[in-house]
Write a protein that binds this DNA or RNA. Structure first.
Length: 263
DNA sequence: TAGTCTGTTAGACA
DNA sequence: CTGTCTAACAGACT
């Protein structure tokens, strides 16, 4: 599922839906909670309305004394439903207009409860996370990219930049006409500056385009229209030059690209 | 049935 | 120490 844009959309939706302490909470799947106790979780949700923050692909509910760290991994999301505890529900809590339900078919997502004062140190992934990619200055990005690495590997590394995922890589490489396996060392300063600018533009656009009560992921249901230029479009014509989009596994994950534009 | 999956991490290896 | 690859997590979908 979710890269930065989808998590940000959930954050904004929660700000609309969740305006007072929850009136009830059901931990549908106890394994969702990897750190902290169910009682502590319940008390936090029922006592305060959290400040909602996003850091990379993480969602943070800051209740004051305690903070919940949530991650959707591959298939998680939070939606507003009339009832709690439906199919794939892992956690449900009651708000004014219904129930907020953390759904996660693959159950890779997780939630942790920490004393706020312990963060981010108690959570290494947060403590080491790189800068947010919206409005990231080119020179700052350049300084964080090891020349020896493949650009794709570096950008997927959350310690380098926060929030970039596999789809964003294909889309941004296509926009900038970069070969899918391009090495950092092959980039000129101008290329890195353009990359930094495109990262911000890409995520801002995607937040705009996908905003709504529920982001439907590719492959979810039969419909799922594809909002991307190249991702999951193997064999379709490139919208710039008509060449068929190709797919290759790079760094263990699929890259989609136009073999003519991006060579 | 086998392959695929918008993520992250640990371990093996060069 | 740096970089790359694989497996594992767990399940649904094609």
């Amino acid at each position: 599922m979710p890269e930065l844009a989808e998590v940000e959309i959930v954050r904004r939706n929660l700000e609309r839906w969740w305006t007072r302490p929850a009136s009830d909470l059901i931990l549908d799947d106890p394994e969702l909670l990897r750190d902290g106790t169910p009682e502590g979780l319940r008390k936090a949700f029922l006592t305060a309305t959290p400040e909602l923050r996003r850091r990379g692909k993480y969602l943070l509910f800051d209740f004051g004394e305690h903070t919940v760290v949530a991650h959707f991994r591959m298939s998680g999301k939070i939606v507003l439903e009339p009832q709690p505890s439906g199919r794939f529900a892992r956690l449900s809590w009651a708000v004014d207009d219904g129930w907020l339900v953390f759904k996660d078919p693959r159950r890779l997502g997780h939630v942790e409860l920490y004393p706020s004062a312990d963060l981010p140190d108690a959570y290494p992934a947060l403590a080491k996370m790189g800068p947010e990619p919206l409005d990231l200055p080119g020179p700052e990005l350049a300084a964080r990219l090891s020349p020896r690495r493949r650009l794709k590997d570096a950008l997927l590394d959350q310690k380098v930049v926060a929030g970039v995922g596999n789809i964003a890589i294909s889309e941004i490489f296509w926009r900038l006409s970069l070969p899918p396996d391009v090495k950092v060392a092959a980039l000129a300063d101008d290329d890195v500056a353009a990359l930094a600018a495109e990262l911000g533009r890409y995520f801002r656009q995607l937040i705009e385009v996908q905003s709504g009560d529920e982001v439907v992921y590719l492959g979810e249901g039969a419909h799922a229209d594809n909002p991307f230029d190249v991702y999951d479009r193997e064999g379709s014509p490139c919208s710039r030059c008509g060449t068929r989009i190709d797919r290759e596994t790079i760094g263990g994950r699929s890259s989609y690209f136009c073999p003519r534009c991006q060579s």
